[in-house]
């Protein structure tokens, strides 16, 4: 079976967030990038597990500049067979989805995996866009997935519960926590990754339908009010009268 895993990079969470002087650009100096955890820990690993069980290949794909190659090599070190980088600086989710769709439309993939969202912009929209371009079913936030022949059984997280679904392949699926257990690349994987193919392809022309025009910092929070631990009536009074939340 053929699996495609969409991977993205994101600033490491503890990064200090700053912008250019006119607040229109995100300041990338000193930022440490990691593979988006949902892509690395859950989407990629489940695709590898399914390949190990059913045979086939796992291809990792990223839309981004050459500096993303480190993150792509990590996907190869964890176990992907080959990788594709579409050489572009995307400004919108739809641009990314369009480029991946162009690659995938004749690729014969049985399942295309994404993370449920990137942890920097939290869009959670590329999966649905990709599925629409490819006219495929889309299951978001999967916390469990099994394949039997051409049928996928999936648990999908919904507010306050889970849905249990059946879908025929091919399909697009986004990964939530629980879909797999994180794998740490070993020395052999890292060495092998250097020899695995990473194909760079040029993007198809597509206008971004939206883009970020400015950044700002959230309003500063008022200093914390420290309260007497002996007097919880006072906290209740403040929550009722001052904060008006109870």
């Amino acid at each position: 079976m053929k699996f495609l895993v969409c991977i993205s990079k994101t600033p490491e969470t503890t990064s200090k967030i700053a912008f250019s002087a006119d607040n229109t650009q995100f300041d990338t100096s000193g930022i440490q990038y990691i593979m988006n955890p949902y892509d690395e820990w859950f989407a990629l690993v489940r695709a590898l597990e399914l390949k190990e069980a059913h045979g086939g290949t796992v291809t990792a794909i990223n839309v981004g500049p050459a500096s993303n190659d480190t993150v792509i090599r990590k996907a190869l070190a964890i176990g992907a067979d080959d990788a594709v980088r579409i050489n572009a600086e995307p400004e919108s989710a739809m641009y990314v989805a369009k480029q991946i769709a162009e690659h995938a439309k004749d690729g014969g993939y049985d399942a295309i995996f994404l993370g449920k969202e990137t942890i920097d912009y939290n869009g959670a929209e590329i999966g649905a866009m990709l599925a629409e371009y490819l006219d495929l079913p889309f299951v978001s936030f999967a916390s469990h997935m099994d394949l039997d022949g051409g049928v996928a059984t999936i648990k999908r997280d919904i507010e306050g519960g889970v849905e249990i679904l059946e879908v025929n392949t091919p399909l697009v699926i986004s990964a939530a926590k629980g879909l797999a257990e994180q794998r740490i690349p070993n020395m052999r994987g890292i060495m092998m990754a250097k020899r695995k193919p990473l194909n760079v392809v040029e993007p198809v022309g597509f206008d971004d339908p939206c883009h970020v025009v400015g950044y700002e910092l959230p309003p500063a929070k008022a200093a914390v009010k420290m309260l007497d631990p002996e007097d919880m009536d006072e906290l209740v009074r403040l929550l009722h009268e001052e904060a008006k939340v109870i």
Binding site: Y121, V213, G214, L217, P218
Partner: peptide, 8 residues
């Protein structure tokens, strides 16, 4: 940690 403004 930030707010981004998008133009559509």
């Amino acid at each position: 940690k930030a707010i981004a403004e998008y133009e559509v």
